[in-house]
Simulated assay, not measured.
Amino acid sequence: MVAEPFKNFINGETVRVAAAHLARHDARFDATRFCDEVIPQLDALELKARAMCVASALERHLAADFFAAADHLERALTPVPVQGTGIVVRSDEGLTGWFLWSAGEYVARRGLVHPERALECLRQLTQRFSAEFAIRPFLVAHEALVFETLREWIRDDSEHVRRLVSEGTRPRLPWGMQLPRLIADPSPSLPLLAALLDDPSEYVRRSVANHLNDIARDHPELVADWVERHLPGASMARQKLLKHASRTLIKRGHPRMLQAWGTGAPFAGTVALTVSPGTIQLGEYVHIVVTLISTAADEQRLAIDYVVHHVKQDGRTTPKVFKGWVSTIDGGATVTLSKRHAIKPITTRRYYAGAHHVSIQINGTQVANAVFELRMHRD
């Protein structure tokens, strides 16, 4: 079965249903004209472009007065989903789901000069979809006001609003506007993340973990400090959050982070690595086999990852760390681990023919290497 393209999350039916809800709550909204303007454009557009196209149409068709338009949008929303169930799409009851990406974009464009009213509208929208993209222009234009508002939202009854506190301020949110001031100095967000660290909702805690992982890319020592401070005596839920927040630094072999999770000591023993077959074509697999022989008297806790050094067009290589195994090895024991790794076309990487090196990384230190040859089908 072929997966439905992402762009179809916003389609003609999405637009027709949303236009009907808007017309039902304000007779001045011309649903037919709105659909006639938007729907013919959608086929040629990808998902984000579709969301922006609908937002532009909302600018033309909603009331010129932003306060009236915000009231209209809020009246047309579906009832708030039951807490703890995630965001439930019930388009038959009102506006919800992917259409609200466009509604949030509309609020970001037209509400920037009315930030207090706009932020309240985003608070309503995020309980039906998410306003993580839409709040970011307000952070740039009205930083003090937004952070004052977020300090109130950390106590909101809605897990979706509390999640927006973290997700909306992520400095490197995928698909979202980057926040250069918070990339350079994330300290304004840290008290908010601390307040949400033990939030009862896993949905919120997962966002906090992703936010901290974003920060780790630019401020690794800050996040190492955070983990060292908050890990001792942590509940299982907090441990899970902190482990997810640590993932980038663990992959990089950051010494303090590895030490915090008990995998900081070098491996005492010998390592043998084989990668077979020696030559593959694009779309095939290699088998990675690692044999560890401990020379220590006591058990060792090991984080074992493998690194594939992908060949670039100019012949240089770039390393990519892949999660391997976390294992505790008894003193003097021999352990063999294996994994099958696919070299398949993906949208985020382009492969080139040549010698691809594979390294084994134990507790952040590379300890063994092997190589395989990749040939393209045309070879």
Rank of each mutant, 00 (worst) to 15 (best):
residue 1 M to D: 15
residue 1 M to C: 15
residue 8 N to Q: 14
residue 10 I to Q: 05
residue 21 H to G: 04
residue 30 D to P: 09
residue 30 D to Y: 08
residue 36 D to E: 15
residue 39 I to T: 14
residue 42 L to E: 08
residue 59 E to M: 13
residue 62 L to P: 05
residue 73 L to N: 10
residue 74 E to I: 09
residue 74 E to K: 12
residue 97 G to E: 08
residue 101 W to G: 02
residue 102 S to R: 01
residue 105 E to H: 04
residue 107 V to S: 10
residue 117 R to I: 03
residue 120 E to C: 11
residue 123 R to V: 09
residue 125 L to A: 02
residue 127 Q to E: 15
residue 132 E to M: 11
residue 141 A to W: 00
residue 146 V to I: 06
residue 157 D to K: 13
residue 160 H to A: 06
residue 160 H to L: 09
residue 161 V to C: 11
residue 162 R to C: 10
residue 168 G to N: 01
residue 173 L to E: 09
residue 178 Q to N: 14
residue 178 Q to F: 12
residue 180 P to R: 09
residue 183 I to V: 15
residue 186 P to I: 06
residue 190 L to M: 14
residue 191 P to T: 14
residue 198 D to F: 02
residue 219 H to M: 04
residue 219 H to D: 07
residue 220 P to M: 14
residue 225 D to W: 12
residue 230 H to F: 07
residue 240 K to F: 11
residue 240 K to E: 09
residue 241 L to M: 05
residue 242 L to E: 01
residue 245 A to K: 00
residue 250 I to P: 00
residue 250 I to K: 01
residue 251 K to D: 05
residue 276 S to R: 02
residue 290 V to W: 01
residue 295 T to Y: 01
residue 297 A to H: 12
residue 297 A to S: 13
residue 300 Q to P: 03
residue 301 R to F: 00
residue 309 H to D: 08
residue 316 R to M: 11
residue 320 K to D: 02
residue 327 S to H: 14
residue 340 R to S: 10
residue 343 I to K: 02
residue 343 I to P: 05
residue 346 I to D: 11
residue 351 Y to D: 01
residue 355 A to I: 02
residue 372 F to V: 06
residue 373 E to N: 10
residue 374 L to D: 00
residue 378 R to P: 01
